[in-house]
């Protein structure tokens, strides 16, 4: 669908188109798949969207870990529904990415080869049931802050996928928070479980917003092109402001001695993030990086014969017949 542009010397025509493009986007205009777009915009979007899609799919694993042990039928069903939603979100965003001229197979290969990134938060293990609550409350909570902004992204297919995702995401956060509230109000063992999960997931959740803006090379460009509308630090602050009172409301303590409400700024001040940990995990040395990719590789490799069978059948039939069953 999109033409191949070389990144070398732009022609005067290209320079004119680029100016028109930036003006259009600057005025809140949408970009659709068949529109002319700078090659760099296309590449940035493929990177950003596929990373997002990979995150949804890899994110199924830490939560999926507790489906078989969910402690009530309702929790089992709600968790299944949530993880199913995540698969769906990955699917929406992969499809959106494909409009930029790349096959889903290529994107999957890049992930499995370790060449593509996904959100580092999913490289942490889910050690207790309370982790499921913490993920819904904090990780989905952080994702919502990010996604609400992305619903206004300049690239049409991404914005539309995000609108659909935002509608579905709210239940994720609520179910997580409800789990934490129930545990915090439960037996002393349950309350300790909840506090322990919060202790382990708080800082990684803040890291989800990425490096501080001074260290984020992509941010400025993405903001110029209307893909990002707010900086990492702005979004992180919004998340803290929303979440700190929520922790107080259920009697749990956020593990940050510097966390304090500032009457003047009306924001919650918080402590320094451990950026060493952030970069260690981003670079592939987090607790579960290897396991997550191995699980996805195994699923993909084990599934090859299934995908092939369906295609072979379709080729034989040209996809017309349907077997009757009942």
């Amino acid at each position: 669908m999109s033409e191949n542009h070389t990144a070398s010397t732009p022609s005067p025509e290209d320079a004119e188109r680029l100016t028109a493009f930036e003006t259009h986007v600057g005025n809140g205009g949408y970009v659709e798949p068949k529109d002319w777009m700078p090659e760099r915009y296309r590449k940035q979007l493929i990177r950003m969207m596929s990373q997002h899609a990979h995150s949804e799919v890899v994110g199924m694993l830490p939560e999926g870990n507790w489906i078989t042990r969910a402690p009530s039928l309702r929790r089992k069903m709600v968790l299944l529904a949530k993880v199913q939603d995540e698969a769906g979100h990955g699917l929406y965003i992969y499809c959106g990415t494909e409009t930029l001229g790349v096959d889903r197979e290529e994107l999957v290969e890049a992930l499995l080869a370790g060449k593509a990134k996904y959100s580092s938060i999913f490289n942490y293990p889910t050690l207790t049931w309370a982790d499921i609550g913490a993920i819904g409350w904090l990780v989905d909570g952080a994702a919502i802050v990010n996604q609400t902004m992305l619903a206004k992204a300049s690239y049409g297919p991404y914005a539309r996928a995000m609108i659909r995702i935002c509608k579905e995401e709210n239940f994720h956060k609520r179910q997580g928070y409800e789990i934490m509230a129930t545990l915090a109000n439960g037996t002393s063992a349950q309350k300790a479980m909840a506090q322990d999960a919060l202790d382990r997931w708080w800082w990684p959740s803040l890291m989800m917003f990425g490096p501080s803006d001074t260290n984020s090379p992509n941010s400025a460009e993405l903001i110029k092109w209307g893909v990002k509308k707010k900086t990492n630090d702005e979004l992180r602050q919004r998340f803290v402001d929303l979440t700190a009172p929520q922790a107080e409301a259920i009697g749990l303590t956020i593990p940050d001695p510097d966390l304090k409400y500032d009457e003047e700024t009306k924001h919650w001040n918080f402590g320094e993030i451990d950026w060493d940990e952030f970069w260690t995990v981003v670079k592939g040395n987090g607790p579960c990086n290897k396991e997550r990719l191995e699980a996805r590789r195994r699923a993909h490799d084990d599934g090859a014969w299934v995908r092939a069978a369906a295609e072979a059948y379709a080729a034989k039939r040209n996809g017309h017949n349907r077997a009757t069953a009942a």
Partner: peptide, 29 residues
Amino acid sequence: DTQWPLWEVFTQSAPGKPHEHAGSVHAPD
């Protein structure tokens, strides 16, 4: 080895309404 061909999906939200583009899926047939 592919992820199957791409299909576009259109949904009708209620009787009498037009079918609208909802998104895509991959499927073999």
